[in-house]
Design a protein around this nucleic acid. Structure first.
Lengths: 254, 254
DNA sequence: AAGCCTCTTTCCGTCATACGGAAAGCCGTG
DNA sequence: CACGGCTTTCCGTATGACGGAAAGAGGCTT
């Protein structure tokens, strides 16, 4: 943990990412800071419009400055989102399940768009949320497109964090599975990221590198009922369509 | 300027809010920091996923964590945006000019949604951007709904910053104009925020307080050609429609 | 292929400055 | 009117952020 005050200021921002206004003492408690410290840091955040203080209650909430900056992030994936959106809709229509667009931000994947499924029990991921790539179908689909040496570098030799009992435990096991994924063209996650939830995903390739992945996620029994292999074929066809509109010549393995 | 390192970290974030990746030295130059200082601060931002470092180039770009947090900000205005959107479309259709939805974040107004006009020369404001309320039609429309004492408190007795030669110069003059705005129901900005640009706006009221404003902005000659008074009537009718769908009983002054 | 230049990264001694305990305002409530 | 909770301010201390300098890493040119 490098610069303490910056880290603490970010803690405050994240603690404010809730629907209601939050009071100083509660913020301090949640972030483990002294009220006076929180107050000083908030002062700086307010000065910069990242935080606003309600005139009526004195409590704090996030300012719109954050949006101004987040727009710049969103612009980076705007083109990809536009191209992928119709295919997300298709996937949702065919399967009835939630369809996601993700990008790789090593060592994580990040959800950048989603179409929610029509079932009453459906998966939903907050846009912007990050999950370890090795624990997800989309992550595996994307990692499989990269040289094993790069994957090794991303994860080093520390053991992989176990999110569920079925999470892949070692980099060696991950690399072995990535071979399979590359072979068959799609990745699968069987309750590896969250108990009871499964996911199937295929990579979107631009010129030179993998740029994202399409995935479906659903309760594990429904994934099995739909047959992972068939879902895989659907996702490959949709992802390849996006790849092609990005100018990638599908068919050439890498 | 309160906490230096936090302030500098935010400088870095803002310097990264551009389409391309940025190198360390350039970032340091732009923000006026030493490269070693910038590097240390970036380390913290990277640790927290606010910034990502490209594996290929070593240069820096914003991470998706920002989106995750910005979503929380956007949610606060989601309902209002949904209600106002069709009216923005209408305003754009009738006038051909850009229509904006703004909220008050004293002492500024913030753009939270926009429909771009169809003319080749059209106004556009970045969503999330903030502008002093006293210099804009939308700001005046909203401030006019508040007790003068509150307005006085917001601006204190420091002279108002002059954004153009026509910007309102004093709080006294502002309060006088707010009386007029309240009387006729809409606010006007005649090149007060930006030379050559004019704006007309009407307030959206929820139960108890003003919650936002609708505005049209265009080059000054086109505002005059369309007749500010007529634009005002259009905006009032649209804004009142939004107010009504928020449960506000239109007709009662305050 | 070798060397140069620019960029990123690390190191470390100094002193500015962020920290946090404590006390002071400020409200709304009983 | 006094109490309890909140936000805000103050200030002495020592932590930890700073930045100069040097080392490491690529990428280009010659």
């Amino acid at each position: 943990m490098s610069v303490k005050s910056v880290s603490r200021a970010l803690d405050l921002l994240e603690a404010l990412a809730v629907p209601e206004e939050v009071g100083l003492v509660e913020l301090a408690t949640r972030t483990g800071l002294q009220p006076s410290t929180a107050h000083r840091l908030l002062g700086t955040l307010i000065e910069r419009r990242y935080v606003v203080q309600s005139a009526a209650t004195g409590r704090y909430l996030l300012g719109h400055k954050l949006n101004e900056i987040a727009v710049a992030v969103a612009k980076r994936t705007e083109h990809l989102r536009e191209l992928a959106r119709p295919h997300l809709e298709t996937i949702k229509k065919v399967t009835g399940e939630s369809a996601n667009l993700t990008v790789l931000e090593p060592p994580n994947i990040v959800y950048v768009d989603q179409v929610e499924g029509s079932r009453s029990v459906r998966m939903f991921a907050r846009i912007g949320a990050a999950v370890p790539a090795y624990a997800t179908a989309a992550g595996k689909a994307m990692l499989a497109q990269m040289p094993p040496a790069v994957v090794r570098e991303i994860y080093g030799d520390a053991p992989l964090e176990q999110l569920t009992p079925r999470t892949i435990a070692s980099v060696e096991a991950l690399l072995a599975e990535l071979d399979e994924v590359r072979e068959r063209g799609f990745g699968v996650d069987r309750e590896e990221q969250e108990p009871g939830v499964g996911c199937v995903a295929a990579p979107i390739r631009g010129d030179g590198a993998v740029v994202g992945a399409l995935s479906v996620s659903a309760p594990m029994p429904r994934i099995d009922a739909a047959d992972p292999a068939e879902l895989g074929e659907l996702l490959i066809s949709r992802a390849d369509a996006v790849s092609m509109s990005l100018g990638f010549v599908v068919g050439s393995r890498r």
